[in-house]
Design a protein around this nucleic acid. Structure first.
Lengths: 211, 211
DNA sequence: CCCGGCATCATCCGATCGGCTATCCGGGGT
DNA sequence: ACCCCGGATAGCCGATCGGATGATGCCGGG
């Protein structure tokens, strides 16, 4: 009975959320919160020390490396824990990045406690657990000709929404203006628009960018 | 000693957050959580029943009326409680709407517990409590005049978000291209941007356009 | 092993945008 | 009565954008 208790570490920059998850999770017989972290560096340290089974990871960690990058870091540790993303947002880019970083599950913070517990147990067993809304969206994307924008293109969109010109974006991203224009053309095609303004609106509507 | 204990009701659609705030707040000698609600209707009911001193209000309540509207509702009740907004976002529109709705305070969820407790106690005494970052932004805004866009300008913004060119907008609105450009210039000035893409992003962020 | 997607860069060119300046008109507030 | 503001219009011009076209290198899946 080595695995009687599932050891959990929380990574979230909101004290309120940490307290909430701790209160809920600790009330479960088979789940133990063995550590907390408010940022990326703390997360790596705590995970290294406590060797948990599951890490509950928020994606937005304020300053410094985000949850996706932190997921990569803890997954590269010896005896890596399973990572269950627990966040507020479910934009496509967030999900894809997290999964790519090695996350085994993706839950939203508005999930009922029961769902959270089941997700933690499932993740500990190595299952992949997705929130219904996330799963639905992924399937929709998989079914329809998925116009998925690349990470670099998302970067362009971000700057676009800030109103930068091609020249400024080029400087910002350390590439040539020609490259920026190339990315933009691809973005237009993928989003089915032909202007910057339309691209921004569509990107926000499709949750590629957060308002 | 009528006011020995401060009675608090939580309104938040995230179970995790409710559990967190409850755990933290209940651990304080002088603070009691006497009720919780996950949506607007529940909030009104619970507040009516429990007559709390302070309501901790989240602004995004999933489906149905939001936190701002709910704030209005509970403030219209007999013996209305003080409302302390506790949310993740601090966009201008959110803050202004909440304050306008009768909120006595505005805190962010990443606030340390101590700050939360002080805010609750302050709010109960009828003080106005603002998170530092919120206060800063508010003052900046107070200094500069409120940039309110005219109905016609909103019309332009709508078409802009659809990616229309000036010529197309002119045709759509039955005015000359010069007029469209004039409106656009005014919009840029009011929103503090200088490109179409930036205008769309800012308009959506300020809730002038719906995503 | 080859294809396709991603990212990079280059040119050319017509269309469009954005800033500037100015005018006109009607309505609401002082 | 007067003035300001929103709305509409005009012309000019340099800067920028967007489309078309083509090319290179890298990587990962079939």
């Amino acid at each position: 009975m080595v695995e009687q208790h599932i050891r959990v570490v929380l990574v979230d920059d909101h004290p309120v959320v940490r307290a909430g998850v701790r209160a809920l999770v600790d009330a479960q017989d088979d789940l133990d919160v063995v550590g907390e972290a408010a940022d990326s560096a703390q997360a790596v340290a705590v995970v290294g020390e406590t060797k948990p089974d599951v890490v509950l990871m928020d994606l937005s960690l304020g300053e410094g490396p985000g949850g996706a990058e932190t997921t990569r870091l803890v997954r590269d540790l010896p005896e890596p824990p399973q990572v269950l993303v627990l966040t507020t947002y479910d934009t496509e880019a967030d999900v894809l990045e997290a999964v790519d970083a090695g996350a085994a599950g993706y839950l939203l913070k508005d999930a009922p406690p029961d769902e959270l517990f089941r997700a933690i147990r499932g993740t500990a067993r190595g299952e992949t657990v997705l929130a219904p809304s996330v799963a639905t969206r992924l399937l929709q994307r998989a079914a329809s000709p998925a116009p998925k924008v690349s990470p670099r293109e998302v970067e362009i969109l971000r700057l676009l929404a800030k109103g930068l010109g091609n020249k400024e974006m080029a400087r910002e991203l350390l590439v040539s203006e020609a490259t920026v224009k190339s990315h933009l053309s691809h973005i237009y095609t993928k989003l089915g628009v032909d202007t910057r303004a339309g691209a921004v609106a569509t990107a926000i509507e499709r949750r590629i960018l957060r308002p």
